[in-house]
């Protein structure tokens, strides 16, 4: 797809996704029934869970495209990787801020070392390193390779982190852990809303991912042009 096409599709998807998100907000305020045991705070899940899913999806995409970039050395794969990483940081931040807001009501404390929360926190820091490495080399090509290495090692580390945080939690059991997605299936309207929200977040991510990708492509064009002028 050309850069212009990417841009157009990206804008379209972003607009649809944002409208979908507004719709999800509206539904979660005025339509969905309140969960019996957790009350109102459970509604945070309609942004938290989709944000978490998008975060993991984005970081997976980033690690995959990074590995392919090191292999094939196609500039476009690196563009995709950096775009996905940026999205992962944004949605990871949403996940990390909304989780504690829910936890304060449900568990009585802002932060717990809940496995998935911990995993996301560490991922967030791994990708902070990704951006720091990328921006601190004189030669941008080198920065891209370094960042790809960070993303790949980060992805390889995920299973270990997952096992360790699960194990660590079994050492310090939480007093009350109510996790709706582990319980019996969600009542129909809640499930519908959660799935709608998942779709909206995914579409937003894809749209913005494409826009970000187009941006990186235009930057490349700018570089090429500047080099031509210099030569």
């Amino acid at each position: 797809m050309s850069i212009t096409g990417m841009r157009r599709t990206g804008t379209g998807l972003a607009v649809v996704g944002l409208l979908g998100m507004m719709f999800v907000f509206w539904l979660s305020f005025f339509w969905v029934s309140t969960e019996a045991s957790q009350g109102v705070a459970q509604r945070i899940f309609y942004v938290h869970v989709p944000a978490a899913w998008t975060t993991f999806f984005a970081f997976g995409l980033c690690a995959l495209t990074s590995a392919m970039y090191l292999w094939l050395r196609d500039e476009r794969l690196d563009r995709a990787a950096v775009s996905a990483a940026e999205g992962g940081m944004i949605f990871g931040t949403i996940m990390l801020t909304t989780g504690p807001l829910w936890g304060r009501i449900a568990w009585g404390t802002y932060w717990t070392w809940e496995p998935r929360l911990t995993l996301t926190l560490l991922l967030w820091f791994i990708f902070l390193g990704y951006f720091m490495v990328r921006s601190s080399t004189e030669n941008p090509e080198k920065g891209k390779r370094f960042a790809a290495v960070v993303a790949i090692v980060g992805a390889l580390d995920i299973p270990f982190i997952h096992v360790s945080v699960l194990w660590f939690r079994s050492l310090h059991p939480q007093p009350v852990v109510v996790r709706p997605e582990d319980g019996p299936a969600l009542p129909g309207d809640m499930l519908t809303l959660l799935l709608t929200s998942l779709a909206a977040f995914t579409v937003i991510f894809l749209g913005l991912f494409m826009l970000r990708y187009a941006l990186e492509g235009l930057r490349r064009e700018l570089d090429v042009r500047a080099r031509k002028v210099a030569a």
Binding site: I126, M132, G154
Partner: peptide
Amino acid sequence: PILVFPLLVPM
């Protein structure tokens, strides 16, 4: 440290 600490947590 910024690069390796998050990776070293499981260890």
